[in-house]
Design a protein around this nucleic acid. Sequence first.
DNA 1: TCCTTGAGTTCCTTGAGGGAACCCTAGCAG
DNA 2: CTGCTAGGGTTCCCTCAAGGAACTCAAGGA
Lengths: 150, 150
Amino acid sequence: MQRTDFSKMACSIARTLDVIGEPWSPLILRDVWVGMSRFEQLQADLGISRKVLTERLNHLVDHGVLERRPYDNRPRYEYVLTPKGTELVDLLMVMVGWGDKWLAGEAGPPVLYRHHACGEISNVDLCCANCGKPMHANDVDVLAGPGAAQ
Amino acid sequence: MQRTDFSKMACSIARTLDVIGEPWSPLILRDVWVGMSRFEQLQADLGISRKVLTERLNHLVDHGVLERRPYDNRPRYEYVLTPKGTELVDLLMVMVGWGDKWLAGEAGPPVLYRHHACGEISNVDLCCANCGKPMHANDVDVLAGPGAAQ
DNA sequence: TCCTTGAGTTCCTTGAGGGAACCCTAGCAG
DNA sequence: CTGCTAGGGTTCCCTCAAGGAACTCAAGGA
């Protein structure tokens, strides 16, 4: 956890960061998303300290992003995405899109996505939930909402 | 910077985190986006340590996300988003969408977006850059790309 | 009975975040 | 030309989180 507590700021970015803003958390979600669900797998794949991995998994479970579920008679557990966590993967896909475009270099993107609906290799874009047209940073006005501070 | 260096991992999520994964960085971008561009403004608004703010701003400038530009004959500077940084705001908008849905509580979202194209208060959704249809975590297959490790 | 495996705990060291104080440059007021 | 002010940082110290290695514990299996 960061030193400063972001969870009480009147900002959905800060509150989201309180859930997945700590180092490693997005990479843990990525691994769970692509099917790595067990402690040992995650630890080996990420090279993360076991202590920190324990802390992160507990934090993600506490916030309803992952679910810890036994998979054996022995004390063995796996971590799976909840619906809340699955929607966070949208965020990861947008991160992938930006990283692919600006940071991948000449080797090209490390992974590709094939979209079920059209069958093509593609990438995510942002559109308006209301009209469906593109919606990027310069396409909106920012207004105070009901939950604004003061 | 996190202890572990994410920048050399063959993963666009890790590489993106290397740019904006440190604490405060996304909130700094948010503030710059909505028009807070000067050191003193950012420090006062965020309540961040001046030392850390200096480090973050330098890191973001080094990575081409922000540009440091003088605005006076005196040694005064403001920070503005580059095109690379403006595209990162997409990521922030998706974070806002998730936070609004899962964390805002009964007070409602702190800010609202009005989409220029349709004039309505709306939110971002993810669609396929190829076919335009919705594209979420469960709508894709993940395949190895040209820049995959090994 | 011992060995192995998954899933953590415990302990120590290092270094990043928080906070306050200090510094430097350029204008401006007297 | 002296002192004051404001913006934009540095410097310093303290604490707590990340890294890493070693240790624990429970349940099967040889």
